[in-house]
């Protein structure tokens, strides 16, 4: 068992706490239950995407298409419900089917054909966005049927916002998958030493394909929460969410080079990004400065990752 300070997510936790304390002094509106629950609700979609992204990055890959895939799943689900009048649970199923299918497509090209994940998902970034607009005719679909309003802004037992419930459940399941299943353990093995993993007889192709399917399913789940929160859907939702999702994973201490990291760090990373935005909104700082702040924080986090890796290599 690693000591607390040796955990990959330690830095993210310290950053969340320090930023939280500073914002409490900086704004009288920051530290109250309502705002804190707001931050968690606002972090939920990015946190769900970051969860899947963690699997991909742990294997040494990256999924740049998560924003577009979220839009595709969400737009198609919205279209089915609002324009075609299809049962919402069927639409949810369809969203997951799309997520899984695109995951299989990405995973096949990366693991079996051998195209770098960066290229496959960069193409996917515009491919799935285009399909999202095309499949739905570019329409905005608003007024989603039950259970979407409840998923988006309902409270479980009257006080627990549903996006938080979904995010928490998701992270408990994902932590379990990563720590206690074959997929989880092999993900680390493949990321830290792909050749070695192959030599000990791990069928790395199938497990690599698996992580893209996980990421695709996470996009579908994120889409369901997102369109619920907006009570509407269209092909233009979730623009550039991949950047926030990747940033959350990196801020959470997961190495871009694969093999090292944790799922809990990604949750903390998503919360950290959301806290920065929330704090800057409360302090009335313009969106341009917000974009600069988040970009700078991400560069610093990658910088730290590189230094960490160099130290590890020297040892």
């Amino acid at each position: 068992m690693k000591t607390l300070a040796r955990q990959e997510w330690y830095g993210a936790m310290v950053a969340v706490l320090v930023l939280g304390i500073l914002l409490s002094f900086a704004s009288p509106y920051f530290l109250n239950t309502r705002n804190l629950s707001n931050i968690l609700v606002q972090a939920s979609v990015i946190a769900l995407l970051a969860g899947g992204q963690t699997f991909v990055i742990l294997t040494g890959g990256v999924d740049l298409a998560v924003g577009s895939l979220t839009a595709l799943s969400g737009a198609v689900a919205g279209y089915m419900m609002v324009k075609l009048g299809i049962d919402p649970y069927m639409a949810i199923l369809a969203a997951f089917a799309i997520g899984a299918a695109v995951g299989i497509f990405n995973g096949y090209l990366v693991a079996f054909v051998g195209i770098p994940s960066f290229i496959v998902t960069l193409g996917g970034l515009t491919l799935w966005r285009g399909l999202a607009f095309d499949a739905t005719g570019g329409f905005d679909m608003s007024g989603l049927p039950d259970p979407f309003p409840f998923i988006g802004y309902g409270d479980l037992f009257g006080f627990l916002p549903m996006p938080i419930v979904i995010m928490a459940t998701f992270y408990i399941v994902m932590s379990f998958v990563l720590s206690s299943t074959k997929l989880g353990r092999y993900v680390y093995a493949i990321g830290s030493n792909e050749m070695g993993a192959r030599q000990v007889g791990i069928n790395i192709r199938w497990y690599k394909l698996g992580v893209y399917v996980v990421s695709g399913l996470c996009c579908a789940l994120a889409a369901i929460v997102l369109i619920g929160r907006m009570d509407s859907s269209s092909g233009k939702i979730a623009q550039m969410f991949e950047l926030d999702a990747i940033a959350a994973v990196i801020l959470g201490g997961t190495s871009l080079f694969g093999g090292r990291g944790s799922i809990i760090g990604s949750l903390l990373g998503a919360i950290l990004i959301t806290m920065i935005r929330n704090g800057m909104n409360l302090l009335e700082i313009s969106q341009f400065k917000q974009m600069m702040a988040i970009g700078a924080v991400v560069i610093i986090a990658v910088w730290i990752d590189v230094i960490r890796r160099q130290r590890l290599l020297r040892k």
Binding site: G11, A12, V14, A15, V18, L19, L22, L23, F25, A26, S27, I276, G279, M280, L283, E284, I285, A293, V297, I300, A301, W303, I304, I307
Partner: peptide, 20 residues
Amino acid sequence: MNFKHQACCVALTLIGMIPA
């Protein structure tokens, strides 16, 4: 350079911008 420094930098910037 670590996360603590990074958070402090962000926070100091934020405090500098506290409204009147």
